[in-house]
Amino acid sequence: MKSTEDEQPALTARSVVMSYGHTPALKGISLAIGKGEIVAVTGPSGSGKSSLLLCLAGVVTPDAGEVTFGDRRISAEGEGQRSRLRRTEFGVLFQFGQLVPELTAIENVALPLLLGGRRRSEAMTAALTWLDRFEVGGLASTRPSSMSGGQAGRVAVARAMVAEPKVLFADEPTGALDTLAGEQVMAQLIRVTRESGTTVLLVTHDARVSAYGDREIRIRDGQLDHHPARHLASVSGPDGDLG
């Protein structure tokens, strides 16, 4: 039997509201994401899916409502605490092409550990292990300008995973990669995060990426989009009740 701790969701949002100035982005979103779940957040452009990711990852605090990570109410924490949380417990992966161009693959991957105060030799060893897990260990000394899009993508995922986050947030993780390169990145990302039991939140407009998730959370106009079964008999037409 699972313990209570196992059953506690990794992340929850309760009635989260957020606006950019007078423009509402999230209009009261409530959801729970289980530990080790891979969830795709989808919706049309401007629907609020990236804003939801920013709130859940503690990058921004909502105007109302709360976000919790385990027992921590992160929406009530200050920037310093949230920043530490993002470095230690969360991995963030934005559209590819964000590797530091002057650094080699291994230096790019070691960067989050070095910024977190880890010794250089330890950070480089861990970085090589993660490059190997994504089958790009051979590129350790290569700079991003000499990598293919797919290779750079895998290095970026290795960098997001090197601190062994509990939750990985990925916003359009395949970016502008072609279908096959995007597929390789996604297949390896899913394999590695399933092995490590990492919770993954994938924000995407691409159904092919969404299909890697265990389930989908659909956002429309800043709200969760439910589409429950409705029978024609219960729907009133222009001429009255069709039932």
Binding site: A211, Y212, E216, R218, D225, H227, V235, S236, G237, L242
Partner: peptide
């Protein structure tokens, strides 16, 4: 026979079913 909201619901349900199939493949 009905309205935009109903057609939207039908489309969203169809979309969910297609996505389920895509998830299996």
């Amino acid at each position: 026979v009905t309205d935009t909201a109903y057609a939207t619901t039908c489309l969203e349900r169809q979309r969910a079913s297609h996505l389920d199939a895509m998830r299996r493949y």
